[in-house]
Design a binder for these strands. Structure first.
Length: 496
RNA sequence: GUCGGUGUAGCUCAGCGGUUAGAGCGCCACCCUCAUAAAGUGGAUGUCGGAGGUUCGACUCCUCCCACCGACACCA
């Protein structure tokens, strides 16, 4: 049986428009999904939206539209982003989906309750009337809410709690032993430090009177599930958890545990502590790898609405194309550290790497070849080229295993640079007149290089890969091309 | 405050005990003309954040300091 690969992204909170950071996460996950598909694995790739909570209910109210309409509208925007980025997800889950998600969330709740890990407790907190919500001490300045300049009231309410403390040790050992691996190690260490002092139980519900926009607690209509008990379960409900039909059961059995869960560093704690705690309580295996990416700043400043520097991925895609945006995010932004975005750097990379690099190399080879060779011809590689290609693949695979997308791309560009040198050193353009046989051999050699580049780039720049394959007259599904038939095409990356 | 991360050429980063510290981009010069006025070759640029220490030898290990970033728990 084929190896399976289940990968998820965090689900996005739909209270605001997507920005470049959202795009970054999707693209990273997509590269992994496509890479594993290319390896022949049976991939299930999940992404989606988190649509519950008082914040959204309030945002909808401010906008003057019913909550359901509000989330439908915003979810569409996020789905639009996924499409615009050419993300190859197999499913898009929405936590407001009563058919698909709710049964899963409620089943999880019952599972936790059956394990004796759900209990009721008085919760005492600082309630800000302005927020219509509890605030933390962090939000206070001189004892007053920083936003509303009012002293918060101390309010007690009864909530359900999840006995997370019980699983502290188990989670710690799973992370330490890498059975539940957290990438990068900085994130792993951060969470281990937290675990050293043990985890506290977490509040898992809110009174329905305060939070009605969410999944009802099973058997207690007075309470609504709070974010963790609801949202985290999406990773399971999307593959059938909570459903008893045959297909759901087999999907769940087939795909869980997730092989990689991609998240941002802001939600590390929830995915590395609460989520594994829930899974342990429900007697489900833990995900294999939690991959934590950093944030994107803009010109050294935090991307934020108040600074007005939010980068809109849609307009970037519209101007430069999907693959150019994908390339930039994967090549320029380090996979697990914070990265910086500026339009200047974007254009610089676009010009040097894409237009003058890959695009120009492809054009010079295909144009020259197509002009002089009409028929089809077989691939060829001399010893040096063969070695170059092999080494590129080794470097590339190693980088992919380490989630170093930037390094993998660097390796591919080494191959285009090799090809450019090959053209120059052989003075390829003189050969049709001087040595026709040699010319044919060299073109075959260069096409072999290009075919490998197309294959290497498949997970990263799917459209570009296809475009190269089309100009070479090959099919990428064949893995190893048997013969080429050149056809001049459009510029891969026109100068803008 | 505590804990952690980062600090290497103008930019993005690699190197992490051992010859004159590297790559790509950018810059300058040369050169080719097949190609998207692209490619190729050569070159300049670094007190490897600072100060001490360990060592025959440190960008690489230790201590202290500085700068930036993050976490410090329920952010509803």
């Amino acid at each position: 049986m084929k190896k399976k690969f289940y990968i998820t992204t965090a689900i996005d909170y739909v209270n605001a428009s997507p920005h470049l950071g959202h795009a970054f996460e999707k693209v990273q996950a997509d590269v992994l999904a496509r890479y594993h598909r290319a390896l022949g694995e049976e991939v299930f790739f999940l992404t989606g939206t988190d649509e519950h909570g008082a914040k959204i209910a309030r945002a909808a109210e401010d906008a003057g539209i019913p909550v359901k309409k509000f989330v439908d509208k915003n979810a569409k925007v996020f789905q639009g982003l996924v499409k615009a980025l050419n993300i190859s997800n197999d499913y898009f889950i929405r936590t407001s989906d009563k058919e698909v998600h709710w049964p899963g969330a409620q089943k999880m709740w019952k599972a936790l309750a059956d394990s004796g890990d759900i209990y009721k407790k008085q919760y005492k907190g600082l309630y800000c009337v302005g927020h219509e919500a509890f605030v933390t001490r962090k939000d206070l300045v001189d004892g007053k809410c920083a936003l509303h300049k009012k002293e918060p009231e101390i309010i007690e309410e009864e909530n359900y709690f999840f006995r997370l403390s019980k699983y502290s040790k188990q989670i710690e050992s799973a992370i330490k032993s890498d059975k539940f691996r957290i990438v990068p190690s900085a994130s792993k260490n951060e969470i281990l430090r937290l675990l050293e002092s043990g985890l506290e139980d977490v509040s898992f519900s809110r009174p329905s009177k305060d939070l009605s926009w969410g999944v009802p607690v099973p058997g207690d209509s007075e309470h609504t599930m709070y974010v963790w008990s609801d949202a985290l379960v999406n990773y399971l409900s999307a593959i059938g958890y909570g459903h008893s039909d045959a297909k759901s059961r087999s999907n769940l059995k087939r795909y869980w545990p997730a092989d990689v869960q991609v998240i941002g560093k802001d939600i590390l704690r929830f995915h590395a502590a609460i989520w594994p705690g829930m899974l342990l309580s429900a007697e489900k295996p833990l995900p294999k790898i939690l991959f934590v990416h950093g944030f994107i700043s803009v010109g050294g400043e935090k991307m934020s609405k108040s600074l007005g520097n939010v980068i809109d991925p849609f307009s970037l895609i519209e101007k430069y194309g999907t693959d150019a945006v994908r390339y930039h995010l994967l090549r320029e932004i380090p996979p697990t550290n914070d990265g910086d975005f500026t339009y200047e750097k974007f254009e610089e990379r676009y010009k040097s790497d894409l237009a003058k690099g890959l695009g120009n190399f492809t054009a010079r080879v295909v144009n020259l070849g197509a002009r002089h060779i009409m028929g089809s011809f077989a691939p060829r590689e001399n010893r040096k080229t063969k070695k170059e290609i092999e080494e590129t693949w080794i470097h590339y695979r190693k980088s992919m295993e380490e989630f170093r997308f930037d390094e993998a791309l660097q390796a591919v560009w080494g191959l285009t640079s090799y090809g450019d040198k090959f053209v120059d050193e052989s003075k390829l353009w003189e050969l049709p007149q001087k040595d026709r046989k040699k010319f044919n051999l060299y073109i075959a050699e260069l096409c072999t290089i290009l075919a490998n580049i197309a294959l290497l780039l498949q997970p990263f720049l799917p459209e570009t890969s296809q475009a190269i394959a089309k100009q070479l007259g090959i099919k990428l599904e064949d893995k190893k091309p048997r013969k080429f038939k050149l056809k001049k095409g459009e510029s891969l990356f026109p100068m803008v």
